[in-house]
Design a binder for these strands. Structure first.
Lengths: 138, 138
DNA sequence: CTTTTTGCAAAACATTTGCATGTAA
DNA sequence: TTACATGCAAATGTTTTGCAAAAAG
């Protein structure tokens, strides 16, 4: 991208925008767009799936949502805008996610530098099964 | 692991199995199943896409291939069976990947234990632009 | 011969997009 | 009024699956 100054997208306040946001906040761990859409329907909100996707994208861009790429798709989670980025320990069963902090991320920059890479982003995803789900494991 | 003795899947030796493996080895960085399939076609091998997916899955399970989940899908890369799992520094432009080793992964187990999680897998993906691609950066 | 593997096409999903229609500002 | 936002359905793109035919052992 040649840094084309994008027309500062206007953000209009809409019911569905709020609904998506609220639903996301209500969700315990990371959720997929479809899952969130399902939840919204159950709650009575008649928000279109496309809108859920669009809003989730916006939320992620705005930093209001954290997102990780899982094999079953993109997952989102509400996130305080101040948080910046962090890593998670995610339960593969229920999706519950715990924030974890690596002791140091210097080694990442270190490694990048050593190999002549310019860092753009990094992801640390740790998957497992939480105590609750693990106990009832079949 | 509950060590449920799974019916030891028979592994029959087939041409396409070899073809997929070879194509994967020939590929420099991480490749998607579809990309690999395309490559195979260009090389003349008439391997079905489904087979490529199936084999790639097997290779990953067997530990003969490394795999990362990217937004555009699952990516695979040939990998020595002895290697175990490791992490990568991936160029977002050309896909070239360099192996990197975190100083220690104890903190992951540590964190899991602390939160009562049973670890199943973890992924560390660091994305950036390699020296080569970075130079010509527009 | 028996069982696995393949190929193909259809099915399943996740996600995006085109467009007419609502609607905030 | 006038853009932007939404909904819906169609379009994409990836990965899986059903099943009959081919191949391995």
């Amino acid at each position: 991208m040649t840094d084309s100054a994008q027309p500062p997208r206007e953000r209009r306040r809409t019911v569905q925008k709020e609904a998506v946001r609220r639903a996301l906040v209500q969700s315990p761990g990371f959720v997929s767009a479809t899952a969130l859409h399902r939840r919204l329907q159950q709650q009575g909100s008649r928000v279109g799936l496309a809108t859920v996707y669009r809003q989730l994208t916006v939320l992620a861009e705005t930093g209001l949502a954290d997102t990780v790429t899982a094999p079953e798709g993109q997952l989102y989670r509400a996130c305080a805008p101040t948080h910046g980025h962090h890593h998670h320990l995610i339960c593969e069963d229920c999706g519950r996610a715990v924030e974890i902090a690596p002791p140091s991320e210097e080694w990442i920059e270190e490694a990048a530098r050593r190999h002549g890479y310019t860092l753009t982003r990094h992801v640390v995803e740790v998957f497992g099964r939480c105590a609750e789900c693990g106990a009832e494991r079949a």
